[in-house]
């Protein structure tokens, strides 16, 4: 082992200079890793007074009264979960339908190309523009729907009145449009990675197109679609501006999807600018909870995605 390592050009022994560029790159990598730790450390450190003062109660109480120094984020946690699950409810069928549309040959390739472009454009539009659009387009629609729904199903708690324009439903509808590209892109990838032979096998057994899709293609791609949905959920939970502009930012708990609500991200966006003292610490605590929720959701999504890739690698 040592013989080839010895330098054969000069007997004095040749030592290569340390690769400075490698050290530079290594430092950059280390900094990237430390970045995540630094973010979490900074936020924990700034949240510490609030963590000490409120402890676990912070997550289970629903008072947000800055001038009395009473803080609890339960309504915002519930609002975050409710708005994003509702958004998934709308976006999942649409996203999967588009993913199937893009991976099948219903219409000509040029139309599919256009659809892909449309979905990419939806991803590129800034959140704040969705918010502005939501204020002028979705709020009137949801208000009209809400008035009708309160009149028709008013006894049902989810549709109890009065109906507001700035409501959980409004935010969820816009969120659904915003996370559609995430769900579509990942689902499409996993549909496209279903081996051709499986589809051909199904056709050879006499299956129609949709029998093949439902019995062979969707089950094979299912883990990928689940991952897409989870990652979409993660995006919905962290989405800030459009939600802050549309949801009404209320800390009142309500069963109705037609009444104002609030999310953690929206709370941060609304209050950080003029927060003082303990309110800043409490907002940092809220940010910490938001990081916790989104990290768990995203790790879960990544894990499912990785599992999917392993599974499909086996089929190929």
């Amino acid at each position: 082992m040592s013989a080839p390592e010895k330098d054969i050009i000069s007997p004095a022994g040749y030592r290569p200079a340390p690769d400075l560029f490698k050290i530079l790159c290594q430092t950059a990598s280390l900094l990237t890793v430390l970045m995540l730790g630094w973010i979490i450390y900074e936020i924990i450190e700034s949240a510490w007074p609030a963590i000490q003062k409120f402890g676990f109660d912070f997550m289970t109480t629903s008072a947000w009264v800055p001038n009395r120094e009473r803080f609890g984020v339960l309504p915002f946690i519930i609002g975050t979960l409710a708005s994003s699950f509702l958004a998934i409810l709308f976006a999942f069928p649409l996203g999967v339908a588009i993913a199937i549309f893009l991976s099948e040959n219903f219409l000509s390739p040029s139309i599919r190309q256009t659809m892909r472009f449309v979905v990419e454009m939806l991803a590129a539009i800034p959140s704040v523009v969705y918010g502005l659009w939501g204020i002028f387009v979705i709020i009137p629609i949801v208000k009209a729907f809400g008035d009708w729904a309160v009149g028709t199903f008013g006894d049902f708690p989810l549709f109890s009145g009065p109906a507001y324009g700035n409501s959980l439903l409004t935010a969820s509808v816009v969120l659904a449009i915003m996370i559609l590209p995430t769900i579509t892109a990942i689902s499409r990838n996993s549909l496209a990675s279903v081996p051709k032979t499986l589809r051909e096998g199904a056709y050879a057994l006499g299956a129609t197109r949709w029998e093949a899709i439902f019995s062979v293609i969707l089950p094979t791609a299912a883990p990928g679609i689940v991952a897409a949905t989870i990652l979409g959920l993660g995006r919905a939970m962290g989405e800030t501006m459009a939600v802050a502009m549309l949801i009404g930012n209320s800390s009142r708990l309500s069963w109705s999807v037609l009444s104002p609500s609030g999310t953690l991200a929206g709370l941060l966006a609304n209050q950080f600018g003029e927060a003082q003292g303990l309110q800043v610490n409490s907002l940092m605590y809220a940010a910490l909870i938001l990081i916790g929720i989104t990290l768990v959701v995203n790790l879960l999504g990544e894990a499912v995605l990785r599992y999917t890739q392993k599974q499909t690698a086996g089929i190929r």
């Binding site: 995006r235 989405e239 941060l268 950080f272 938001l290 990081i291």
Partner: peptide
């Protein structure tokens, strides 16, 4: 870490 950073809500970057 890079994957996790893509998943972090943009408002957290602000915080």
């Amino acid at each position: 870490v890079a994957k996790l950073l893509t998943g972090i809500p943009s408002i957290i970057c602000g915080v």
